[in-house]
């Protein structure tokens, strides 16, 4: 049975990939249904994930009298309220949207604020744990770009020499980002090859 999965995955991947390089009507006719099926399966996969979260995790915790079953009770109640609101109010309703934005956005924003403070603490101690030249470079880079992005060096635009230097320093993160993008591209290519040759089988579960 696994070989069937592999054959289907490889064939679908090759058809979609060839559709990018060759503008053939036949390939287009094959490619469009595959993409539609994939979109539909992705939506169903989301639904399956929700059902697993409710029944496979939190309801199971309640049945097994898990020590953290209190959190599961909160999650199940929130899920039920959101589901009922979405069914009766529809997703386009402003009331339903506020139910999401007024709850979820503050919670996640608070987590981001805590993350910011944690990062500051980590930056404070970086020289304690990494007392080497890479640690010093990172330490100086953090301070320099924080100051640079704050805009307090805007006065340097009147000074040609400093303006050119700061403009060049602004490109350093871009240069680093290019390297990261190249790495991402190579990683994506390797991932695609692994899937196409059947080495990586994410569809096997």
């Amino acid at each position: 049975m696994k070989i069937v999965n592999i054959v289907i995955a490889i064939a679908a991947g090759l058809i979609v990939l060839l559709g990018y390089f060759f503008n053939s009507p036949g390939l287009h006719e094959l490619r469009s249904p595959l993409l539609d099926w994939a979109v539909t399966l992705s939506g169903i996969a989301g639904l399956v994930a929700i059902l697993n979260l409710v029944f496979g995790v939190h309801l199971k915790r309640l049945r097994e009298n898990h020590p953290k079953k209190g959190f599961s009770v909160v999650i199940l109640i929130s899920f039920a309220v959101t589901l009922i609101a979405g069914v009766f109010l529809s997703p386009a309703s402003e009331g339903f949207q506020k139910l999401v934005t007024r709850v979820q956005v503050p919670i996640e924003s608070s987590l981001m604020a805590v993350l910011a403070i944690t990062l500051v603490l980590a930056a404070l101690k970086i020289l304690q744990r990494h007392r080497n030249w890479m640690g010093f470079v990172f330490f100086l880079s953090v301070i320099f770009f924080l100051v640079l992005n704050s805009g307090v060096l805007a006065f340097t635009s009147e000074i040609p020499f400093l303006r050119d230097i700061l403009s060049g320093l602004h490109q350093i993160p871009v240069a680093g980002a290019r390297g990261i993008l190249l790495g991402i591209a190579l990683g994506s290519l390797a991932t695609g090859i692994r899937v196409l040759i059947g080495t990586d089988r994410p569809y096997n579960g």
């Binding site: 101690k125 301070i143 924080l146 704050s150």
Partner: peptide, 27 residues
């Protein structure tokens, strides 16, 4: 809100610099 943003960035930069110097001295 840009003034708050700018002041926060400068404060974080100062804290990191001070923490790094203290770490160098203590360690």
């Amino acid at each position: 809100r840009f003034s708050a943003y700018q002041l926060s960035l400068l404060l974080v930069a100062v804290l990191i610099f001070a923490g790094g110097v203290v770490s160098l001295i203590l360690a």
